[in-house]
């Protein structure tokens, strides 16, 4: 064992420098060339940064599209899922409460129209997206709150819907923050 100690120590130092110093610095250098300079893509309204395109944020007011429930209340410095098991009775009660609350805020919507993703917590607690169905089910409420024609808002959702990758891979999605920014810009 003794004759392996010295090479081990030296090799360790060399590999720390190669893999943990040179390598990340190289990637950070290339990262400077990316759209967000390696800091993540932000969204700006009236010259003010109002959020990261990829990091979901909380919307509780009736005039905005709500994102999915979050186990950490959209705390972007401490991501987490609920880690609730599918049969947990407390969990099922929470979901039932969310359904009831949604029905109160969205008169005219029937229970069987509520998509499950709107009453279940996301994996990260920071899900920036909604499924098109989860956005559309909120259109009626927003139209009534903002006094805008339902059809116009529905058209906005369609316009903001991102199709599957190359048309054939993965789900459709709508970015909630971008959708709400566009909503605010609507007259």
């Amino acid at each position: 064992m003794k004759r392996y100690i010295l090479p081990s120590l030296k090799l360790t130092v060399v590999f720390i420098i190669v893999t943990a110093v040179i390598y990340p610095v190289l990637i950070a250098a290339v990262g400077k060339l990316t759209p967000g300079q390696g800091r993540g893509e932000t969204i700006t309204v009236n010259g003010k940064v109002i959020g990261y395109a990829n990091v979901g944020q909380k919307f509780a007011e009736d005039k905005y599209f709500w994102g999915r429930p979050s186990a950490v209340d959209y705390n972007a410095a401490g991501s987490a899922g609920s880690n609730k098991g599918p049969s947990n009775p407390d969990y099922l009660k929470i979901v039932q409460d969310r359904i009831d609350s949604f029905l109160v805020h969205n008169p005219g919507v029937k229970k069987e129209q509520i998509p499950a993703e709107l009453v279940t917590a996301s994996g990260s607690g920071l899900d920036p997206d909604l499924s098109p169905a989860a956005a559309k089910v909120q259109v009626k409420r927003i139209a009534a709150t903002r006094h805008i024609d339902e059809a116009k808002i529905l058209a906005l959702v369609e316009q903001q819907t991102v199709k599957p990758l190359l048309g054939f891979m993965g789900p459709e999605k709508v970015n909630v923050l971008k959708l709400n920014v566009a909503l605010d810009e609507m007259k």
Binding site: S82, P86, S87, L92, V95, A116, E117, V119, A134, G170
Partner: peptide, 26 residues
């Protein structure tokens, strides 16, 4: 297919069991 316990509540589970999952991934 989704969580059978949520099916019993009568809501739509068209894109599967989404507790702990992300929309963009599915």
């Amino acid at each position: 297919k989704g969580n059978p316990a949520l099916d019993k509540m009568g809501i739509a589970q068209d894109i599967g069991s989404m507790e702990g999952k992300e929309i963009r991934l599915g």
